[in-house]
Nucleic acid binder design. Structure first.
Lengths: 218, 218, 218, 218
DNA sequence: TATGAATGAGACTTCATTCAT
DNA sequence: GATGAATGAAGTCTCATTCAT
């Protein structure tokens, strides 16, 4: 039940193209299986089978089940980071706050919708078991750090601690509402997305005044 | 892996004071164990031991592990419902929106802080495994329904669907931020609570204009 | 799993009328439960409940589950013995062999049909588990002994060993075919009963020649 | 207590010679254990141990305890069927009825004597518990069907229903007496076997007259 | 004497992980 | 390197039996 910390590392960072492919096959399979039955109920045999690998093959890359989860989380984290980075480098960064938020949330929504495994990993990583909970870092925290950079640019007067807090709140809220949105049909998803925008714009305009495209909502 | 729905019922609703006590002992123990290791990793033996009962004693009340979780959830649900009901009956219901929200969130924060098991149950109930997911109802949804009543009184023009959505968003957001607040020290908890108030007041004033005590924040 | 032999005894032979009634209630209940689910799957709690007694009450009479089975078997044995005794004392004993056999088998068939518990006890007593198998005696054996007396009267020339063997064969065959007859509908039951008569008459006339009412069958 | 019917299938039909061997080891072990303590009292751990396998190894082939019993029954059924088939194809089929019966019963006796597991399976399959009772088919019934073919050849005038009944009676009677014969020493076994022949020849000559080698017994 | 809550050994079964081939 | 059969610790749950009330 308690795993030796070192063991969460990968056993072998795949170098060869062939290995790399196999590695990703396993991760894809794991995402599917985790999504379908949850982390605990997922079996390593099921993951290996879904990845068309042998169970022994799976254990060549991952020392144990938790390591698979970690690797999956790391992969998604990379993708989400890229998502946010892309925004800050793009011209979108120059938009009024509400437009910017709207676009970011749209992009996030599309990413999550298109990436079913994300949901499992980012949700379960926080709530399931201490093993999983003890994951290297709070993944959302890392995403929040990217937001901080953005906030710092928009309002240099904010204290760093306050920046961090606001960013964290935004990420938590956006995550949980995104997850909520996925619990029902597509119409519901759209409406929740709209509410999320409302919520965050209302919240952030307190800290970034005079950055809205339309001065008053009403 | 899949449990027959009927079986989630209690085996015996305890009537006698003695039984009632034992029943609650088990539920308290379960709350602790679930909180410590999560639903899946929690063992019925561990729960029985923590409750100072034999494993057989536990199964006199609960037909299986999931039933324990359900009973625990039901107990908390009752408590949270009472919390909200108390507010709507009290004079607080006459307060300006922001004061009202502030008081409700304070009360909720105190409840959650004083009720460690709440976190596990209300969070895990939505995210853990299909078994748990299949719980009779989305517990947060039930809390949200109480909010709807309140909203209907404050603004009769809102469509029911919109009321439901807003209530759900509020509950989700308040829950996740409450949980976030508990991940660090008490100072952090306070700051997150303040942000939560900010966030929700900013959000709700869109739907309930002219109900604030202080017209403008700045 | 291994029961101390002494323990199969009754804990208390009920003397009082009240006790006697309770004792029989339990035995009746046991017969039903054994018949429905088999010896192994029958629970002492189920038997007590069916007998409208408490589990503690049951254990006042019977030291363990096997003792219940034994007592039940003993009760049926008594009844079957009476059945056969009645026949030998009656005028039926003077009938030609084939008429006699026919009447005995009819009576036995009626008894078994009217006594569902008999089936379980007499069947399971031979086949289930060593515990049960080790029952004081082969119950069928005791019934066979009654037949021997009859055979001795009809043909004093038969060796005792041969008498015993023939009697045993008759009882075994009658039992198994009676049981077979109960596996389908009433029409089947009748046809099997007729075949049983055929079978046993054909068999016994070898040992008791010139005792038939109708010299040739064809 | 109630097992899903689908689950009685094997988990994996062993193909490789190695697997095949392990599979049979387990079945042999199961036959021994079932014979010793009965189906219900037999534990999967005991079977695995007797087969010199780990419990996990056992469950690679069989999804549950009942499946082991089924597989064992299937194996014996195949063997008994072959036994009967061999007789009908051989020249023995041309023998007078009494010689034929005698030879078949001798062969059956040798088979059962040499196959201790047969007793448990074929006896318990009908009588033990509803789980076991629900076995795909009444195994004796399947054996009886082979006899029907034979009867049809010997006496084409018999109605099919009557053929089936006679065949069933023969199989039941032969089975139960075979089992009886095994309860005591070898001398007893011989004597019971002789009686079984007597019994069945006397019975069958009613339906297949003029097929005996020696017209009168005395 | 009667009750039935409590006990706990032990059954079945799963699945992460290893290692001989 | 790859495979997948094998292992066995550990989990859930049952039920015969006891004994405090």
């Amino acid at each position: 039940m308690i795993e030796r910390p070192q063991e969460e590392q990968l056993r072998q960072v795949p170098q060869q193209a062939r290995s790399q492919k196999r590695f990703n096959q396993i991760l894809d399979a794991a995402a599917e299986v985790f999504a379908e039955v949850g982390y605990e109920a997922a079996t390593t045999n099921a993951i290996a089978a879904r990845a068309s690998t042998s169970i022994g093959g799976l254990y060549r890359f991952f020392p144990n089940k938790l390591a698979i989860f970690h690797a999956l989380a790391a992969r998604y984290l990379e993708q989400v980071k890229e998502l946010f980075t892309a925004f800050q480098v793009s011209e979108a960064a120059q938009l009024p706050l509400d437009s910017y938020i709207s676009q970011v949330l749209d992009a996030f929504d599309q990413f999550v919708t298109a990436t079913p495994g994300y949901r499992v990993v980012f949700v379960q990583s926080r709530f399931v078991s201490p093993d999983v909970l003890a994951m290297d870092a709070d993944l959302n925290r890392q995403i929040a750090q990217q937001l901080e950079t953005f906030f710092a640019l928009r309002n240099p007067n904010l204290e760093p601690a306050q920046q961090a807090l606001i960013a964290t709140v935004c990420v938590e809220v956006a995550s949980v509402l995104e997850i909520l949105s996925l619990t029902r049909d597509q119409a519901f998803q759209k409406r929740v997305l709209a509410e999320t925008k409302n919520l965050l714009i209302g919240y952030l305009q307190q800290y970034f005044p005079d950055q809205l495209s339309n001065p008053t909502k009403g």
